[in-house]
Design a protein around this nucleic acid. Structure first.
Lengths: 134, 134
DNA sequence: ATGACTGCAAAGACTTTGCATCTTT
DNA sequence: AAAGATGCAAAGTCTTTGCAGTCAT
């Protein structure tokens, strides 16, 4: 039997903060961002709720960038660009083939494919300018 | 000026082990695998060399799966399937559009795109059988 | 000999967890 | 009141690093 979930001010705040940004934040960023409004917030609570949200499927992990896990409240199919310089994670609206590609892999290998990620790596425009100046 | 690189038995062994497997191992796996032949090998050396290889571009990180970074000596363009159950990382030969897609993102956003990863997530056939039995 | 490479163990960095306390229902 | 949620700090994991000794050139 599953454990019930109760309302919690902080949980709501964490999810809202995640929905209001497109920066694909880390747990630490959420903690720092919410701290002023919720002074008794603890990092552990942020982590616990992120884990819960992920299990519920309301958020998704974009992966670990430079040692920090990045989260995304946008669970619709889209891609990402990761800047190897400033570690920004930027949304790239649907460049991939969508569901068809998953079906193709599923049929060829006999795997149950639930999801796929397309991620680009390189240097963002801002960081490219910086490099040029040096 | 870059630092010179000298020959090292262990370095060679680490790279060989990585080239001989398609399991996308972790540092720990390489360490355990090479330990019998190189009894005085240390985990630190494995990590140091993996970092070196990655900088040299002779290997690539497939990302962090279940808290462990996974490495791949195959730097040619291909995709991966990650089993969320047993954490296996399995090669999926080229399903994506290749270089064109990178050019497209590069032009649209003004980013310098160096690489892209396409990763599928789900349950592998072996783990699906296990689940059925239960 | 010189500078690179390594073992070892300590230090780091991020995340998880136990327990007493506070909240929600 | 009962059970979930949180703060705090300790514990866990994976990875990095300093230092002294070893090896390649």
């Amino acid at each position: 039997m599953e454990r019930a979930t109760r309302y919690s001010r902080k949980r709501e705040a964490i999810l809202s903060a995640l929905k209001e940004t497109d920066s694909h934040p880390t747990a630490e960023w959420l903690y720092q961002t919410l701290k002023p409004e919720h002074q008794d917030l603890s990092l552990g609570t942020v982590y616990r709720n992120l884990t819960l949200f992920r299990e519920q499927g309301v958020i998704r992990s974009v992966g670990v960038v430079d040692g920090h896990e990045r989260f995304d409240a946008n669970t619709e199919n889209h891609s990402h660009f990761v800047c190897r310089d400033c570690h920004a994670v930027i949304d790239i609206p649907k460049v991939s083939a969508g569901g068809e590609i998953e079906r193709s892999v599923s049929e060829q290998y006999g795997f149950s494919v639930e999801h796929h990620d397309l991620t680009f790596y390189g240097t963002c425009s801002q960081c490219m300018q910086k490099e040029t100046k040096v």
